[in-house]
Nucleic acid binder design. Structure first.
Lengths: 135, 135
DNA sequence: ATAAATAAGACTATTATAGTCGGGTATAAA
DNA sequence: TTTATACCCGACTATAATAGTCTTATTTAT
């Protein structure tokens, strides 16, 4: 209930780790998983999502891994979260694929527009908080 | 994922309904359930929670029902949400029953304090948005 | 008395999240 | 050119959280 998913947490943790450990080599999924003792497969997926969303760059093969594409002051939490959770809206009827004015309740619940405003403010918080701020 | 629960939605909807329909009598759970075509039992529970949390007053017996205790400008969304979702924190380690510095990750994920700041900002949004604003 | 309403807790069903597994591709280095 | 390491990706399963139902008790106006 209004909680970040593990995927989002892992995205923040992984991004933070990459921001800090910028020793020459790229950081591997295994390194992050071992460091925090979390599922390697999940972290891998998260990192793949970060790469797909141009937040990280991936290098394949031996000596491969990931590095951040931008500097930590230019990466906002909303980017990291949306990379792993494309729809993170506080209510279904605000989701992107939801047709305008769709409301599952009879005669409409009428609170959609005010909630959209709340959503904008929450987005703003996650936009203005940068990776650099969680380091 | 960062989504309001149905309970929270119902709390907002029910509170809004009470704020608008203040015809002499109290509003019944049945009336609200019928109006939005949502589960009577669930709305009942939500209304009971609002009463327990001093947001609404309940009247038992025939002609019973609920009315709001305060005016809609004095009821914030955070009150309504917390009435039905006592712990609505964005991450487990920020929850009230969580001992300070508890972190499920090896060597700690280190993002707890910055996230607490994010949480405060989100709380502020829900505190500053009043029932009157969603009418 | 009766009917309409809240109160409360146990129970079940459904859905979302978290986590696993298997097969594939790319590449540095021996 | 073989091998080991690491990314890529989709399907699958298990678990947990949410949503919804059922039952019984209590209150109270008529």
């Amino acid at each position: 209930m209004l909680k970040l998913s593990k995927k989002s947490e892992y995205a923040l943790m992984a991004a933070r780790y990459m921001a800090i450990k910028n020793h020459g080599n790229a950081v591997t999924a295994k390194e992050i998983a071992d460091n925090y003792k979390i599922s390697f497969e999940l972290v891998s997926k998260v990192l793949q999502n970060l790469a797909k969303n141009k937040i990280a760059i991936s290098f394949q093969g031996v000596k491969g891994g990931y590095t951040l594409k931008k500097n930590p002051f230019e990466i906002s939490l909303i980017e990291l979260i949306q990379a792993v959770e494309p729809d993170y809206q506080i209510t279904d009827c605000l989701r992107s694929e939801s047709p305008k004015n769709e409301c599952s309740y009879s005669d409409c619940c009428k609170i959609r527009d005010p909630l959209a405003e709340v959503q904008r403010k929450i987005d703003k918080v996650f936009y203005e908080t940068k990776l650099a701020h969680i380091i």
